[in-house]
């Protein structure tokens, strides 16, 4: 993405906090699920968002599509603000932005047929009804590798992979520009994962889609992404092109993540294990503030890392890294 061309999706200083407790006995506790995150996604790009459970990546995805309100900050898609959109504006937004969900079992209403599920957006957005809707549904199913006969059936008659195809068809049927895919393959079997990944890539090429691909599987993210953003405890710690990030990770957390992934080739795996000393670093000096990763970081220097959170700043060859001592 160059500075000259405006990104399709721009995320600016997004924070999302969750408040729990605050009753008579429990103390009010604020969880900063997403904490000051900014990035852009160019039209036609796939941005991979990786992070471990609890990193806030799914929360961020839901804020970006407007399912969750941000505590502060702005998301704009093609210049249109997502936050605060109500009624008609929200509908206009969701004709451009759609989501593919993680769980193929809970993401389809068990009581509706495939036709009912796919007709919902066509009806609610006033796109098509009746025979015209049926024609569009057949097209969407066909694009996702499902036969037209699927229309009259219920979700329980399909396998996980086929359900995920239905979920993708639902997102696709309004012809969006931008799709947020939240762990779209993590609930699927290995051989089915490949089918869905290939399908998502084919659809991107065919319909000129832009993706935000959220996943915890670093190999899958490398495979599908042009650019990758790494999240840790609500903050972005590194962004770079997929190639650069995997070849030369600059943030110690990214380095730890990449080191931790076992490889299917036994020889490569033996090599990896030799390089890796899988030991948790426990810093007695660790504090509550500072860099979110400093308590686990092998490079942490005190008191700096424990007191000051490093900003996401430009680093060599297109990396942006939030670290006092990158590289």
């Amino acid at each position: 993405m160059t500075a000259a061309e405006a990104p399709l999706v721009s995320v600016t200083a997004i924070r999302r906090h969750f408040v729990s407790g605050g009753g008579l006995l429990a103390r009010r506790k604020v969880t900063r699920a997403v904490d000051d995150v900014s990035f852009g996604i160019a039209a036609g790009e796939t941005l991979g968002l990786v992070g471990e459970s609890g990193s806030g990546k799914s929360t961020l995805g839901r804020v970006i599509v407007g399912l969750l309100a941000a505590t502060s900050g702005q998301v704009a898609i093609a210049g249109q603000a997502v936050g605060g959109a109500r009624g008609g504006a929200r509908r206009a937004l969701w004709r451009r932005v759609q989501m593919v969900f993680q769980d193929p079992y809970s993401s389809l209403n068990p009581r509706l047929t495939v036709r009912d599920t796919l007709a919902e957006p066509l009806r609610n957005f006033g796109i098509a009804r009746g025979a015209d809707a049926d024609r569009r549904i057949r097209e969407a199913l066909d694009a996702c590798g499902l036969p037209a006969s699927a229309m009259t059936r219920h979700p329980r008659e399909f396998s996980g992979g086929q359900r995920q195809r239905i979920g993708i068809a639902r997102a696709l049927i309004v012809r969006p520009d931008f799709i947020v895919a939240d762990e779209p393959v993590s609930a699927l079997d290995v051989s089915i994962q490949a089918q869905i990944i290939n399908l998502l890539q084919d659809l991107k090429a065919a319909f000129g889609l832009t993706y935000l691909f959220i996943a915890h599987d670093l190999a899958v993210v490398r495979h599908v992404s042009d650019r990758v953003a790494v999240m840790y405890r609500g903050k972005l710690v590194e962004t770079a092109s997929a190639e650069m990030l995997y070849a030369r990770p600059a943030h110690p957390y990214t380095q730890l993540l990449l080191r931790s992934v076992p490889m299917p080739d036994p020889r490569a795996e033996a090599e990896r294990r030799k390089r890796t000393a899988a030991s948790e670093i426990a810093h007695p000096q660790a504090t509550a503030g500072g860099c979110p990763f400093h308590a686990r970081c092998p490079k942490a220097r005190f008191p700096l890392c424990g007191e000051q959170a490093p900003p996401l700043a430009a680093h060599a060859s297109g990396h942006r890294v939030a670290c006092h001592f990158p590289g």
């Binding site: 969701w94 989501m99 609610n124 639902r170």
Partner: peptide, 17 residues
Amino acid sequence: HEEFIAAAEMSGAGPVR
């Protein structure tokens, strides 16, 4: 909190629907 409700919202369904 099932995902199909979020999906229905994104399919444009209002509270009544």
